[in-house]
């Protein structure tokens, strides 16, 4: 039975629950927008990375270079699109 619950994945799950709890602080505590959004950015991206590495085994084959480049490129383009649009529509309007 024990071999079905590898320590790495159990820890990963526990850690992602903790991160969720930390993110929930922004709901239960009264804090500034900047502090709140910082907490959310940090917890969300750590969680995403956790899933990618612990659960999705992104780096287990010889293709890991290509797979990671693909994901990073996607994230780069995604962030540029989001922040570029915000620049146009909200911040510099």
């Amino acid at each position: 039975m024990k071999e079905l619950f590898p320590i790495k994945q159990v820890m990963g799950f526990a850690f992602s629950l903790i991160l969720t709890a930390v993110a929930l602080l922004v709901y239960f505590l009264d804090m500034s927008f900047t502090a709140g959004i910082t907490i959310l950015l940090v917890t969300a991206f750590i969680q995403a990375g956790l899933q990618l590495v612990v659960f999705m085994h992104a780096g287990e084959t010889e293709d890991k270079g290509a797979i990671y480049s693909n994901v990073y490129f996607g994230i780069l383009v995604a962030l540029v699109t989001i922040f570029g649009t915000l620049l146009i529509f909200v911040w510099d309007m």
Partner: peptide, 12 residues
């Protein structure tokens, strides 16, 4: 020419 500011336009 959409009317965003000079900062956004300069960047792009």
């Amino acid at each position: 020419t959409m009317g965003q500011g000079a900062l956004a336009n300069s960047f792009f």
